[in-house]
Design a protein around this nucleic acid. Structure first.
Ligand SMILES: [Mn+2]
Ligand SMILES: [Mn+2]
Ligand SMILES: [Zn+2]
Ligand SMILES: [Zn+2]
Lengths: 137, 137
DNA sequence: TCCGAAATGATTACCGTTATGATTATGGTC
DNA sequence: GACCATAATCATAACGGTAATCATTTCGGA
């Protein structure tokens, strides 16, 4: 085998901007949007272009270092991934706080159900949203 | 109780446009986008404004007459609903053909898992996508 | 038939995201 | 350290789906 890695190599060059984006996302335990991260960088004096923020978030997600999911209003939010294997999240719709959850039965069920109905190349999205204890006040 | 209905009443006035939108959506067994429906109306000679298509799809969805879900590329697609109770869909990502599926265990699981983690007002989205037998050729 | 209100729809705005392309920065090489 | 090929950056414009505006049209009860 040529390359045992599941994910493409990091961006070959080390840049201030790449480090800055990574630091922000590693420094927070909540799911956050690209624009949110970009705003924090700006206000903290670290000037990084919005395009660059999007690019690094996509790279990190491809590498499996970040999880990404869409909120109800169609915004993609990112957080660092804590697990090696496939999982989903329970996410606070107020603050983005997330907990990783594995639903192995569902995985099998979704695949089996779709296959039985004649569908191939089955994928699924599962998002669980709620309001976390902190945000409930 | 003032009104036992779960859903708001239909638009009070009967209009050509409302009928046209309803007819298109009832005439198809696949999930379809607002723009797709609008295009069909246009090309069939039934002139209906795009805004009006969106408005009627939203109304029908609120009434529970249509199911709506987001595709992977962020487009909302609609289809008539066949069931009275909560359910999800297996959807062909090529043609939009959909099958309603109930996953009662998942419903309980999602709620219980989120509650145990301290989340309230729990909701979930579950979409299963594949390629249907017809589209596989 | 009349008329107040609901509905329509061309247009513009919105919002998250992506493409463009000129400019800058990186890191291997000498 | 200087040089340079090219990866990376980023201001800007474009994009695509959807929602707001608001002047105009249509509905349907009186
Ligand atoms: Mn899964
Ligand atoms: Mn469900
Ligand atoms: Zn919260
Ligand atoms: Zn299909």
């Amino acid at each position: 085998m040529a390359d045992a890695s599941d994910h493409p190599a990091r961006a070959s060059r080390r840049t201030r901007q790449g480090e800055a984006v990574l630091n922000v996302v590693l420094g927070s335990d909540n799911f956050r949007s690209a624009q949110d991260i970009h705003a924090e960088l700006r206000s903290s004096g670290e000037a990084v272009g919005l395009t660059t923020v999007y690019r690094h978030l996509a790279l990190l997600t491809d590498e499996g270092r970040l999880d990404a999911l869409q909120t109800a209003d169609g915004e993609v939010v990112y957080r660092r991934c804590h697990s090696e294997s496939h999982h989903h999240h329970v996410v606070c719709r107020r603050c983005g706080r997330g907990v990783e959850v594995a639903l192995p039965d569902l995985e099998r069920w979704a695949e089996a159900t779709a296959s039985a109905l004649g569908y191939s190349d089955v994928t699924h999205t599962v998002e669980i949203f709620g309001v976390c204890a902190d945000c409930r006040g």
